[in-house]
């Protein structure tokens, strides 16, 4: 099987660097994520994973480097042409480092979640999902004018949005709590609601920052199933940062390993698991985590082969 991240990437990152003053958080990192893959970005704490995410989604302006993205087809020649021009996009090909965060979500169709969950806590679960569909809805509301007048076209669009949100709520098992404030939901539910909310923006690439953090074993397994199901529907590729090796090995098609801001390995889960640099990074760097890392790698060796 040839690698999709080489043949048909959805995202290509070239020599991305992010500096904060004297600190180089991400150093000349290049990788690609395959269309229809689940790509995992792993590495010890402080490796620069979240910083890289923030560059991808426009929250940080990278110091240098290129981030090419296309929901349809990423063509090397087109990327070069676009790079030479001063434009942000050419048809369905985008250079994300030139775009603002909200444009990245709306135009390039990239969605993200956060390490520390960022739901609209005081608003209901349903409202959270409605806000994510705000862009298509506000067109239907005709800059609020049609909506204020209660036009039928607006009502239809609203009903469709509610149906879509209800579908997601059912999928994550929250139908019964649709009208409760998001902040009052249990932690695991909040994690899944945040993923559902990101999915409601209709993304081509879903970026998840530690989606399994703080979940128990059952919840992690449910989450893995959900992510696999999203991938298997074929509309959305997934890029995730994860510490839980069992989750990473079980679901990902492709693993990229960062350490101290640099890429140290890139390949299928099996390749990465056996890579000596990765083992050194996990075992050698953080002494306190040594037994845990060893166990995690051993554990992942088992579960990973079960899953694929």
């Amino acid at each position: 099987m040839s690698a999709r991240w080489i043949d048909d990437p959805i995202l290509r990152v070239d020599a991305l660097t992010m500096r904060f003053g004297g600190l180089v958080a991400v150093n000349e990192v290049s990788f690609a994520a395959g269309r229809g893959d689940i790509t995992a970005l792993i590495g010890p704490n402080g490796a620069g994973k979240t910083t890289l995410f923030n560059c991808l989604t426009g929250f940080y302006q990278p110091t240098s480097g290129r981030i090419a993205f296309s929901p349809e087809r990423l063509d090397a020649e087109k990327i070069e042409r676009l790079t030479r021009s001063a434009r942000k996009s050419d048809g369905d090909t985008f250079l994300l480092e030139r775009m603002a965060d909200h444009e990245i979500v709306r135009k390039a169709r990239l969605a993200r979640t956060f390490q520390n969950i960022r739901l609209f806590q005081g608003m209901s679960a349903l409202e959270n999902l409605m806000i994510a569909q705000g862009r298509s809805l506000s067109r239907a509301a005709g800059f609020s004018v049609l909506g204020l007048l209660g036009a039928p076209s607006w009502r239809r669009a609203e009903r469709a949005a509610v149906d879509r949100a209800a579908g997601w709520l059912e999928r994550i098992g929250l139908t019964g709590r649709a009208d409760d404030p998001a902040g009052e939901l249990p932690y695991g539910d909040q994690r899944r609601l945040e993923i559902a909310r990101a999915m409601c923006t209709n993304p081509a690439l879903l970026c998840l920052d530690e989606p399994a953090a703080g979940l128990n074993a059952t919840e992690s397994r449910d989450l893995a199933d959900l992510l696999r199901a999203i991938r298997d529907e074929g509309e959305t590729s997934i890029l995730l940062i994860e510490h839980d090796m069992s989750v990473v090995m079980r679901i990902s098609d492709h693993v990229v390993v960062l350490d101290y801001g640099q890429k140290i390995a890139d390949g299928s889960p099996v390749e990465v698991r056996e890579n000596s640099a990765v083992i050194a990074a996990y075992l050698g760097v953080e002494e306190t985590d040594e037994p845990a890392a060893e166990a995690a790698l051993a554990e992942s060796a088992k579960t990973g082969s079960d899953a694929t």
Partner: peptide
């Protein structure tokens, strides 16, 4: 959508940006 976006902005501006 506009009014909901206002309330969402009050709750969490960064999350708003992440939703486009």
């Amino acid at each position: 959508p506009l009014g909901r976006a206002w309330e969402a902005l009050r709750e969490d501006e960064i999350a708003c940006r992440a939703l486009g």
